[in-house]
Computed example of a mutant assay.
Amino acid sequence: MSPSTSHPVKLVEEITRQLGLLTDHLAQLPPHEAMQVIARVLDPDDGLLDSVTGLVSVGSTVAMAQAKRGVLPAEVCLALGRATNDLDAIGTDLDEHRATLREVATKPTTTAATPPVPAPLVVRRRR
């Protein structure tokens, strides 16, 4: 990184590094703690997914202004707009499961008298 690297670029690099660490930790956490992290990442009010969606949305707006000035090809602006829409759709798809994730994340870690029944991994979606 050159000495002239701006603060926002350094911030992105640090956030990226921290996300890598979070990913590594998540893979090694006990299930209950992992669910707490996942529920927090997906929190609709101030979770990571919503923040990333907002960041890409602002990037799309900036790219649109740059495309209008002729600095960027329109395809870049359109791609960022689609990415924003896709991230928003992912958040919408997860909305119906956030309460369940929060519930699982906040349950005490005591051992149940009867073990939980594994869920089938193939589920038909309602469309």
Rank of each mutant, 00 (worst) to 15 (best):
V117W: 02
T92C: 06
L11N: 08
L94M: 14
R102P: 01
L78R: 12
M1R: 12
I15S: 06
P8K: 12
R40K: 12
G91E: 09
T106L: 08
L72W: 01
V37N: 00
A65G: 14
V37P: 02
P120Y: 02
L29V: 07
V9Y: 14
P115D: 13
A74G: 03
L94F: 12
R126T: 01
H97T: 03
S57Y: 10
S57G: 03
A83H: 06
E14L: 15
P108T: 13
P116A: 09
G81Q: 13
A112L: 14
V12M: 15
E96F: 01
P116N: 10
Q66V: 00
R82A: 01
T23C: 03
G91S: 06
Q28S: 12
D86C: 09
A105L: 00
L19M: 13
P44G: 00
T23M: 03
R125C: 06
P115F: 06
H97R: 06
H32I: 10
P44V: 00
T53C: 14
G70Y: 11
A89C: 06
R127A: 07
T16H: 13
T5R: 13
D95E: 15
P44T: 04
G54Y: 09
P116C: 06
A63T: 00
R17V: 08
H97N: 02
Q66R: 02
G47F: 05
D93R: 05
R82C: 06
L49T: 08
R17G: 13
P118K: 05
R126Q: 05
A83Y: 02
V117K: 10
D50W: 12
L22Y: 03
S6H: 11
D43Y: 02
K68V: 03
L101A: 15
L80Q: 12
R69Q: 15
L49G: 08
R102W: 04
L121D: 15
L19V: 14
V123W: 02
L19S: 10
I15M: 11
T92Q: 05
V104A: 11
L101M: 15
A112V: 00
P30L: 06
L49V: 14
L101Q: 02
T100S: 06
G81M: 08
P73Q: 15
R124V: 12
D95F: 03
G70L: 07
V76Q: 11
K68T: 04
E96M: 01
V76F: 03
T84K: 10
A65W: 01
P8T: 02
T84V: 00
V104F: 01
S57V: 03
V122Y: 13
D45I: 01
P116E: 03
E75H: 01
T61G: 14
E14S: 14
A65T: 05
P3A: 01
A119C: 00
G54I: 04
T53K: 14
Q66P: 03
L22W: 07
S2L: 15
T109M: 12
A79Q: 13
I90S: 04
L78Q: 15
R125E: 10
Q66H: 00
P108E: 11
Q36E: 11
Q18W: 04
D45R: 07
T111S: 08
L48H: 04
S2V: 14
V12K: 11
A83D: 07
K10E: 08
A67Y: 07
T23I: 04
A99M: 10
K10Y: 06
H25L: 09
L29Q: 11
V117L: 13
P73R: 05
H32S: 14
I38Q: 09
L101N: 07
E75G: 02
T100K: 00
D24C: 02
H25Y: 00
